[in-house]
Structure formats: structure tokens, C-alpha cells
Nucleic acid binder design. Sequence first.
DNA 1: ATATACACGGATCCCCTATTTCC
DNA 2: GGAAATAGGGGATCCGTGTA
Length: 817
Amino acid sequence: MKVNFIGVDYDYFDYQGKNYIKIIGRTDSGKRICLIDDCDIYFWAILKENISEKKIEKLINKINKIKLDIKGRKTKVEKVELKTKNFLGKKVQALKIYATNYKDLHDIASRIDMDEIEKRRGYDLGYVTHYILEKKVNPLAWYEVEGELLNNSLKFGGIDSALDVDICIKTKSIKEIKEKQFLPNVLAYDIETEEFEIGKGEILMVSLVGKNFKKIISCKKASKKHDYVEYVKDEAELLEKFVEYIRKISPDFLVGYFSDGFDLPYLRARAQKNNVKLSLGLDESPPRFFRGAVPTGKISGIVHIDLLKFIQTAYSQYMQSETLSLNEVAKEFLGDTKKPFEFKPSSKIKEEEWETFFEYNLHDSVLTYQLFEKFWQDIQEFTKIMKEPVFDVTRNGMSHNVEDYIIHNLEKFDEIPEKRPTYDEISLRKKQPAYEGAFVFEPIPGLYENVVFFDFTSSYGSVIVTYNLSKSTYLEKPEKNSNSIEALGKKVYFSKKTGFFPEMLKEIIEKRKKYKTELKQKPDVVKKARSNAYKLLANASYGYQGFFGARYYCREAAAATAAFARQSIQTAIENIEKENYPVIYSDTDSIAFLREKNSKVQIEKFLTKLNSKLPGIMELELEGFFKRGIWVTKRAGKIGAKKKYALLGEDGKIKIRGFETVRRDWCQLARKVQNQVITLILNDGNEKKAMDHIKMIIKKLKNREYEKKDIMIKTQLKKPISEYRAISPHVIAAKKMHEQNIPIEMGSLIEYYIAETMEKKKLVRDKVKLPGEKGEYNIEYYLEKQILPAVENIFQVFNINLKEVIEGKKQTTLGDF
DNA sequence: ATATACACGGATCCCCTATTTCC
DNA sequence: GGAAATAGGGGATCCGTGTA
């Protein structure tokens, strides 16, 4: 039988002691298909140098005889081949050791500790990755498959009858074909529960939203019934109905928001309690959970996606939202929000309120569904580039993605994969002191006109490529013709023979450039997603080499990258100053300077000239021209504050970096006022209007004209309450919330305000009150600790001591405020 | 558990010294 | 008068959140 196929969910199983891959996907006619396949199983034993042929032959014979009987499984070395390969860029002789079962590779490897063997590698990739590498059946790519149709067959223990698919094939041959359209069947879901703690209270309702499908299952009755609501008699029936609908719809993707951490584990817990089998898998298996910071929930044959995780790694750094709550994320990407609903115990919800609750619940799934549509393109590109299944790609962090990319591109270099670091190695790496990072220029506080920003494109990435910095190119001993620099308190050397990591990164950067240009010429969603994926990959590569968990960890390379980057930026600054452009500021890879009377064309010419002198793929680009920019002093002292500035663009847009305005742990009022002051000053070029404005604000503050929402302070709880050594205001607020049974956990955003107190209290934390608590805001605190600190150093730029002005005025015209 | 360092600034912690309180 | 308690100053540290 021949069929066109795309792979979506990857899993494997053992049959008669051997491993088989089970890929669930679709045919081009939309049929659900299961593909069964296998591949050679092997790992590598890298030999020491200069081992005689005779010795090798003896060694092979010895290894060939290895047989194991462990974990109730008989396994053996099937064959051994001698190959010439590369390991960390060096030519090596290695034995390719084939075995029966992937899971036994580790045990076999530990038996092979002969003297002639230097290293053992390639047994820790996981069967799915190993299979994808071996057979090149990449997720979300199209293939023409030829094989034996299993129909009520006894093969593999009757797998085809046990699986809820249209076609089940044992693969004979497989060949890549041109990309076809794939419109996945997607179902979003969301549950509402009595309690927040997993499994503690009953599930009140479940909503399911697909392409042309809307459903609420609930045992609570509303006064008016929408046709999408389906009543059930109790929780057990609700769970059964939920399973029934999912089985009927059989989606490729079941999508939730924070569903790894809440919805799916909650459903599982309640199913256990009600003795209902949560047989969501195509083989009717219940979800399996894997340990982690947040456990991940896997459903056999259906890809369970927790969108929150993907957004976290792929998008959060470019987002405006202050939290990654469904509400804020939907607001930012869809321009839509959650429906309003005030939570209370279900016994207190009136009949007419249930209707609103249903609408609320349904809309959460609608938002989740729409967000999936929004990110589907990105998920596809990530999957295709990393060549790992959607389930993993949507959950992995960026370092993991970088590593997957490397592993799936090693073949071109004939490289044997490096192993994952052991626990001991990781602890050792973690103990290493931090190495010197980026250079930041200390600005001279002031208001400047005609500011230009130059940026190094993919700065760290370009440095790694240009100076060939990686684990495989690092030279333990100095060599003459090499790249070298001071780092980690010594001189470090890197070979000039291009390593595979810099080479891969070069390709990533080139691709990113290519798609970015194409995108500019003719925008489309695929190019946008692709360009973005390569951009993220390029940006994460530097961090990867310095990350303690990386297979290709190289502290010297990471430190050298930072060192070469410092050198590059400092040279660029010198060259800009040499042309008599005053440099105002610089941080890591960007430089701000004044163009004074020079035209934009002159600046662009100057940029070309600068670029002609840069080594390798180092390149400066024009980030932008700005009408004005302001840099301020630090709170204490007179020196210029780094990482804090504001710009007025040519288009009139204001760009604010680092100021309290952009920090969520300052109250709205202080942030808004600071923003207004900055805007007024940048637009007018002086502080006059800003001064009037701030006086008015202070007056209103003292008259208590502001609402609670303006003065709420939000701070995230980063660890369990008990672990805090310093008891700061937000910890006190969290404690209060805990006492009032308001659900909080690590990661919760704690909201509180500072209130007036009867007695004089010294510590701020003694004045903390929760939003619900009665009290009046503490005028002195908000003036002295929020409003004034936010704007004081901005006025300092004009040599105005705001405090003196305010207090001075107070003396002359008492009662003015 | 799962990219890096640099930086700001609030608040508390903690040590020291001076002053007050207690006996 | 001397020891213990308290207040306050100031640097160190913790903590959260930014920039790149």
C-alpha cells in the first residue's frame, strides 16, 4: 500500500524485545494514520589513538560476544563496525556498536570500558530522536510511504485493532515529497473548578472549542440554556462525556493554556476520584505525566499542547504584557479579553449567574483556540527547524532547541554527538564563577538632540562565527595561527579551522537575514515565522555555550564571545569618536551618538565606511535616528544611570528603556506620571510643562483624588513564602493572602498597597494592605517613595531639585497642596 | 532544574555606635 | 555607675525587574 503522509505525534513501543516507532499523522486525504517503523540501533565507542589493527580486531570480537539479560529482556550486541568519524572536529576511529534494544545501550556502553576505548557516545539521545536521525522522517514533513497495511492483523500484538485510526501501516520504504497543505484538527479546552488546588474540589464545567464546534459540559443548571451547553448528572458523567467528545472529534492537537500545570492534572485527579477511566489516547490509554518543574501531560496519539509554555520560550521576551495570563496574552495578540466573571463558591452562584459562567468558560477556550491559530505557523517552523516532535518543541526552552538543532545537523560534519553532562559535571559547572559580560557605557546625564543609534547585527552570534568560538575549536594549548583574547583571567585560543558550531550558526544567521529580506519585500506568515525562529535560535546560541546543562558547554568560548564583543564595541566607539561624533551611550551591541549638523546621508555613508573595516561577518546597522533623547543620573549620586533612557523617534513615537514606567513593580500612578513627564520633556525640549504637571499630580495625591487601582503595587512571588530570608512588603502581602485563603503559589503576582497606620511604624511592610482591605493610601509613602523618586532625576537633568521646589513652595504658600 | 552578564533601586538585614533606660 | 535595651546610621545583602 502506498500513501502520502505527514507525521504529527511520535511515540515508540517494544515488541518481542525490539523497538518500534509509532507515528500518528494524517494522509493527504485527511485520514488518521499510524505508521510503524524501526531502525538500526547503535552507539559509538571512540578509540584511543594509534591502536593496532590486530588489537581492534580482538576488541571487536570481544564486544560482539556481549549478551545481557536485564530488566526481563534479552539483548545483545548485534554487530560491530569500524568507522572513521569526527568527534569535536577531530578525526577519530570509532566502533559503531549495534544492539537489539535502545534502552539497553546505556548498559552495554557501561560494559565496554576497555583500555583501548576513549569515550562512548550516542546512547543518550532517546529512541525518537535516534529514529528521526536514522530514517529522516521529520515531524510535520510530507512523505510517500509504502508498506504493509495492518488490518485486524496479529502483528505487534494486534496494534491496529487497539488503535483508533483509519489506517495502520508497517513501513517498507519512505521517501520525502513536496510540501502539501496540512490543516490540523484542533480542539481547545478549558475547565472551571471548585478549588484551585489540583483535584481538591469538583470540576464544574469543561469547554471544548474546535473549528466549527462549541461545547460546554456541566452538571450545574443555568436559568437560560444555550444550545452549546450540555447538562450531565454528575462529575463522573462530565468526565465520561469529555472523553467521549475527544474520542469522537479525535483532534491532532488538544490545546490548553497552562493545561500541563492545571487542566489535565486536575482532570486526571478527578477521574481517579470518580473511578472514571480517562482514556483519551488513541489506544485508550490515560494521559501520562512526566516530571519537571511543571509536569507535562502526554496523550497517546494526540499532541497535547500547553500554549503558555510555547509563548514563554518563543515570544515572552518580545511582549508588552506584564504577565503571561490568558487575559493579557489574548489582549496583546488577539485584541480580545476574557469575559468578566467574579469567582465565588459554587453554592453561592445563582441560577442566572451560571449562564455568565458558561460564557466565561467557553470564551477561554475560544481565546485558546484563536491563540493556537495565531502561533500555529511558529510552532510549525520550530518543529521543522529543530526536527523534533511538536510535543517537545512546544515545551522545550531555547537552549534545548539550540541543542536539537545541533544534533539534527551533525551528520553534515560526520560528527559523533557529544553526551549530556552528568549530574556531577553540572554541579561543577554551576559552581564556576560568573565570567565578565557586556560593556556598558556610563552616560553623561542630559537632554540631547539628533541622536543616532548603531547596532551590531546578531552581535554575539556574529562574534562566535567571526572568531570561530566553540567547544570543538577551543585550543587547550596555544597555537600560532589562532584567534586569541584575554578571558577568564588567561589568554584563550581558538583554532581558525571552522568548527561545526560556528558553521551552523553562520547558516542560521544567513537564513535569518534571507527570510528577513524576503519578508520585507513580500510579507507572509511563513516567512515571518521562519525569520523569527532563526532569529531566536541565533540569539540563544551564545547563551547555550555558557549554559551548564549543554552538551557542547564551553565556558572559554562563552567568555571569549563576551570579550570579543567588548573589544568590537569599544573599537567602534573609538572610531565614531575619531570622526568627532560625541558618543552618548552604549550597551552590549548598540552605540548612541550625536550627529549634530551632519545629514542622515552623511551618517549612512559613515556607517558603510565603518563596516568596510570590520572583520568576518561583523556588521553594524542603523537602528534609527531620534529627534531627542534623555539620560538621567542614578538615584544616589551624580553619575549617569546605565540601562535607563528615553528617546523621541522621528515618527513622534517615544521609546522608553529601563525607567520605572516600564517596570511592573512600581504603582500605576508613578509609572504614568513618569511617562507623562518624559513625554512632555522630549516633545517640548524643556521641563516647563512637566513641572506644572507634576505639581498638579502632587496636589491631587495629597487630596486623595486617586483610586486604589492607581496606587496598587504588584510584585511577583518568586519562591515559596518560607524560603524568603528578607521579609519584604510583598512577602507580607503574600502571607496575608495565604491567611485569607486566597490561592497563591510560586509565580503569583502579589498586589498590595501601602496604607496609613494609626501608630507610627518604621517598616514599609507594617503598612501593607491587600486590595480588599479597608484603608487609605499613605500619602507620604506614595509621594516620597513612588512619585518623587520616579521623576526627581529627570528634573535633575535641568538642575532642578524637585524636592526643594515642592517643599519651598510649601513654605511660602502653606495650604497650597 | 534546563541561555548569559550587567544594572538599578527599594527594602530589609546586620553590625556598629551613641543614647537611653533600668537596676 | 554599669549593664542592658533601644535608636539610628550606613553598608551589605536580598529581591524583583529591567537592558542587551
